[in-house]
Design a protein around this nucleic acid. Structure first.
Lengths: 333, 333
DNA sequence: ATATTAAAAGTAAGCGGTTTCATGATTGCT
DNA sequence: AGCAATCATGAAACCGCTTACTTTTAATAT
């Protein structure tokens, strides 16, 4: 059944050297005479030897595998991050064990323990609630963690982000400056720190700096889906909002289309700014103005940071903040 | 540095049994006296022992890890499949090593060898060209492969799909029945078997059954991106096409918006049917008519099939064909 | 030539489990 | 009570590689 696999031992025998020597050439250890190295290399080639990564992992305690915890694969925001992660992981020869969390606490816990059992060398976490349990699980993992495009409210773990507060402040201020007084704040669950502690803060900040009162009735929490956004159209009209900041592009597309289908003209009667500048912002009609963030880079930088951590390199600031912007498209005047 | 990890040996000592016994209880082997089992379980609990999956993998030659080769994480078609895969993988306790191929041959090759080195128990492949080299790499992997939402033109590997030929035939026939005579065929590279051998066949079939000549000038190959589609608008008008079948939703959205922005009314002046029924079809305006496929299920079934294969279970037909449909939305009359 | 040092190669002990096989403890029967 | 059959456990080999340590070989110095 099993195809005969050739092991380091076979190579050693065939090349008439010890396993140690073979291991050395495989690992690029310089303490090998060129002639010997060549001989071994030839045998490796001839036998088509391929080192068993599992054995290697056990012996060296390094698996060259990292875990990536992602709330939702099908959400562009996360998949763009993942792409950045993936690319630099490849660059540094790490493999990725992808683990979906569905933003579900128990699942996250289980997933982390799982990754720990698999002895990953590091973990990239996307998600926005970190319970004590989860923190414990992280610690058990005995591997560095970095938060990618996700915020660690307690600033215990390294993370790479944009300045969410400032970004939202800017976005909402823009809406205000266009004369909007009743600006809805539409995001996912307020249990998520990014919403509760960052975005909402930016929202309030923008309002108060313009002397606009905060009205809780304008705050909508729902899930990050097109459908959820679409369904929100009526409520938005009911509260007489004339604009909205939305925390997710797909959600924003839903809001946009829901409103449009309800006969509301965007941007004339209602302005929308969304958050992630994913492809949805271009595809929808009207196209959507958005906060822009370097999604790919957030992923890439996270992974790069992780490699440093795994390498025990000194790193400066544990939290890196990437620049954001505001892109005007058709959903704002 | 390293946190003290507790091993099976520690548990054995503490519980005053042998490692073998601990191993047995961990693995649910029935040959353990209930009292002993309980004692061991208690110690495991007390010591917070967690088996090292790498060691396990080496000893048992099973890693409970599978490889998933995906051309593009950010493409909804694939990420929807991946979600299905992920869910049932979780169900069966498998972890996923995600490997992006970018639909690039060399990368695919490297990736497969990589997964092989990591001793994955199985592989799910998405992609549409299988060179001899790649086939060889698959064989070396010594692990079952299944093609998910991708076609193996030589029918050597198990796969789960829809009937692409029939689906495209239906779609194009629908366009014809609306009176369109010049129907463009817009997809990705013709190097991909799914395009060259399946979709195109369906296209031709639909035309010839309606006695419409095949015009190569109506066939467009490009990459699966919004931009590419958008850029195609002019060419589409130049060849005087009045409708198009498009092989990817994002691409279709590009075509749609490109046309719209060029002043062409969809569907009045130009009808579009796309292929994957992803969320883009709902978000665009007008919404897009599409072939419907059970994306999640294709992924899920693929994974389920893989588990059977890994388990050496007898399976009936190596290629499972799931039902497709046609969903009329606003991009067709 | 010989002593000293550095470079190259080998030995073998793990890494943390699984699993085969042997052995001792139980149980069932007559 | 005596013996076979069954169950529960332990001993130890092994999975395929890395690595600390030792030995051998080569190079340089004296």
């Amino acid at each position: 059944m099993d195809k005969q696999t050739v092991t380091i031992y076979d190579v050693a025998r065939e090349a008439a050297v010890s396993m140690a020597t073979v291991s050395r050439v495989v690992n690029g250890n310089p303490n090998v005479k060129p002639a010997t190295r060549q001989k071994v290399l030839d045998v490796i080639d001839q036998l088509d030897y391929r080192p068993n990564a599992v054995a290697r992992g056990l012996a060296s305690k390094k698996t060259t595998t990292i875990g990536v915890i992602i709330p939702d694969l099908t959400n562009s925001y996360f998949s763009e991050l993942a792409r950045g992660i993936d690319d630099v992981a490849l660059m540094y020869k790490y493999n990725i064990i992808l683990a979906s969390s569905d933003e579900n606490h128990d699942k996250e816990l289980q997933v982390v323990d799982n990754l720990t059992a698999k002895q990953v060398d590091g973990i990239i976490f996307m998600g926005n609630q970190v319970s004590k349990d989860l923190r414990d699980a992280f610690n058990r993992a005995n591997a560095p963690i970095v938060f990618a495009g996700s915020v660690d409210p307690e600033h215990q773990s390294p993370s790479v982000n944009i300045d969410y507060v400032a970004a939202v402040t800017d976005a909402v201020a823009k809406l205000v400056s266009r004369g909007n007084r009743r600006i809805a704040f539409v995001t996912g669950s307020m249990d998520e720190s990014i919403n509760k502690d960052y975005r909402l803060k930016g929202y309030k900040q923008a309002l108060s700096s313009k002397r606009i009162g905060y009205d809780e009735g304008l705050v909508f929490q729902t899930d990050y889906s097109y459908k959820a956004g679409y369904a929100l159209a009526k409520a938005l009209q009911d509260v007489k909002a004339t604009a909205a900041f939305v925390g997710d592009d797909e959600l924003a597309a839903g809001v946009l289309n829901g409103l449009t289908d309800a006969g509301v003209n965007v941007p004339e009667d209602f302005e929308i700014i969304t958050s992630n500048d994913t492809r949805f912002t271009e595809i929808s009609r009207p196209t959507m103005s958005s906060i822009t963030q370097p999604l790919y880079d957030i992923g890439a930088v996270s992974m790069r940071l992780l490699t440093k951590l795994m390498n025990n390199e000194e790193i400066g600031d544990k939290t890196v903040v990437l620049p954001y912007g505001l892109k005007k498209r058709q959903s704002t005047k």
